[in-house]
């Protein structure tokens, strides 16, 4: 048995090294399966919970065009969630079980959605910063070894880059708008910059990447490295529209070609992850309530489907 497993593991590793994707019916180590279920379900939950802070502003979007774009965007997020739940189901867990883990607090979602969307500019900031950071992470994950997840990432990244552009476009309209609009944009950047930087995860000192997960191409790049790419890409965009980043130590290092930033408040990050963010309770409650209030609807659909199958069977 042990020998077999060693052989299987060697074959598994060889496939990954050659860049062959692992597919649902292929043999895989249990730790690989578990890690992927954790990552994919967490990702799916983030899409679904992420609908709440943005959905917040659908009814208040300031023009018909903005309303339509926001509706389409939030609908995309729901679609990503559904797609990712289905991809995770290929690993032998079902959506109901994943949702139960979300509702009981066992499964996490991205901590960024525990911050409130206070003004319209926050919708711009989410698209620009939050989706921008997510893309950095997801383009790396698209090169991962698990076929269904990597293919989902390719597709999702395409839509996310549209989301990112629409967010930046909102920020541009505001930054070049009336003084009140510009102030709104600046305030949103002040509030979202640090959480966006933190959403890419703890720094490498606090998040030792398992060599195993790296060699299995589950984790593709370190948090700090992704964070650096995000900052390097985003700061010039903010400068371009005349907004100021809320970090007095942020400066470009000509020698390294990278931006350097001030210290990150990890105490805040870990508190938000633990449940002490401004909206943790409200977000989870909204999801739990939707599930509870929808129970009778799902039961009705099931009962109806059962009756119909029975009738059809009897008629046959």
């Amino acid at each position: 048995m042990v020998k077999d497993e060693k052989k299987l593991l060697a074959e598994f590793q060889a496939k990954i090294d050659k860049g062959v994707k692992i597919e649902p019916k292929d043999w895989m180590p249990e730790h690989y399966r578990k890690q992927l279920i954790r990552m994919m379900s967490q990702h799916a939950h983030s899409e679904i919970v992420g609908m709440l802070p943005e959905g917040n502003w659908i009814t208040r979007a300031p023009s018909l065009r903005r309303k339509a774009i926001l509706l389409a965007k939030v609908q995309d997020e729901a679609g990503h969630g559904m797609y990712l739940y289905s991809a995770a189901e290929t690993l032998g867990i079902d959506r109901t079980e994943m949702l139960e883990q979300l509702h009981t607090g066992k499964a996490k979602y991205s901590s960024i959605f525990n911050y409130p969307t206070l003004t319209w500019a926050d919708i711009g900031a989410i698209g620009w910063l939050v989706d921008g950071a997510a893309i950095m992470n997801q383009t790396a994950l698209a090169k991962g070894s698990y076929g269904p997840y990597s293919r989902a990432m390719v597709r999702i990244c395409k839509e996310e880059s549209f989301h990112n552009r629409q967010g930046y476009e909102i920020m541009c309209s505001l930054a070049f708008g009336t003084p009140e609009q510009k102030a709104m944009a600046q305030d949103a950047l002040n509030r979202w910059w640090w959480p966006a930087i933190m959403m890419l995860g703890p720094s490498d000192d606090n998040s030792p990447n398992s060599a195993e997960l790296m060699s299995w191409k589950v984790k593709m790049e370190s948090n700090d490295s992704i964070r650096q790419r995000f900052i390097d890409r985003t700061v010039p965009q903010g400068d371009h529209i005349g907004l100021t980043f809320p970090d007095p130590l942020l400066k470009f290092n000509k020698e390294t070609g990278h931006y350097e930033h001030g210290p990150i408040n990890w105490e805040e990050f870990f508190n938000v992850v633990k449940g002490n963010g401004p909206c943790n309770k409200a977000r989870l409650k909204a999801r739990v309530d939707a599930d509870k209030d929808g129970k009778w609807v799902r039961e009705a659909a099931e009962a109806y489907a059962m009756k119909h199958t029975e009738k059809e069977t009897l008629a046959a």
């Binding site: 709440l52 339509a68 509706l71 939030v74 729901a78 559904m82 929808g294």
Partner: peptide, 27 residues
């Protein structure tokens, strides 16, 4: 649009948002 994120099942969340988008488009 008020339903967004609160539908009884994910598929219906998507359907209602989609229908809302159609109506905003007609309008």
């Amino acid at each position: 649009g008020e339903w967004c994120g609160h539908g009884p099942i994910l598929e219906e969340d998507i359907a209602l948002t989609n229908i809302s988008l159609d109506f905003v488009g007609h309008a």
